[in-house]
Amino acid sequence: MRGIAAVSLWLFALAAPAGAYGAAATPIVMHVEGADIRLTTRYEEARTRVMLRVCEGCDAVVRLSSPAVEARFPLKGKTGPFWLTVGRVSFHGVPWLYLVKSTGSLDRILSPAESRRYALDEAGLEASIRVQSGVDRRLYLNELVKLKKAEGTFGFDAGGLRKRGDGGLEAVFRWPAGTPPGRYTIDAFAVSGGRVVGRVSRDVLVHEAGLAAWISRLAVNHGVVYGVLAVLVAMLTGLIARLVFRRMPLGSGRS
């Protein structure tokens, strides 16, 4: 029933003439598919589709992010020929996930002040993160962003918000494997003349489900039971697989 209501609302929004979106009225309408993410063993299905309609001539930016938390990262240093962990660096206000997609280059569609104000570009994100005192802030922020980008949990995708055939915009976020369960936020911004003219937000709930959730919980909370079970499952798999494959004709050689 809720699904039908959501679809009706979306169709209503689509049916509305583009001219109905005045910058002062409703500059942006958002519809989200996949706002309740179940992380299961079929992980590739975990994606969120964001559909937008923005005021005529407007650009748009959409951001998927998690709450900012305090985090400590191991620091590598060269010890002899190897790169070993030589310490840890603390950061405050680091989101685990921070993915931004836009209709075009942020430099082109937004003024630097607006980007920074809404933390929509790299500089804006970095400005919102605090680094432990006594270390080179610039250096470690750069390293943090480099690491998170390589991990796929920070990303700035100019052009990732694409036009649909019906004139609306669409972005698809694929949830990175290893996404911690929790509440995430999608913020969508309508941009005109280098300024944000409208903003809508929506929460997305991520929770583990099915076999993956059960295994994950058991592994963390009942390690010994999980270990015994892993041993039994391995023994059984080994025995069954051997029985099955032994019966398969695999050639006339020795087996």
Partner: peptide, 29 residues
């Protein structure tokens, strides 16, 4: 395996089962 699961939480049974199925078939071939 039990010790690693209890102390390091690092045993992935899904991974192990997939590998075992492949390994048994591969060993026969």
């Amino acid at each position: 395996t039990i010790l690693q699961a209890a102390l390091n939480h690092s045993v992935d049974v899904v991974l192990a089962v997939g590998l075992l199925i492949g390994a048994t078939l591969g060993a026969q071939v």
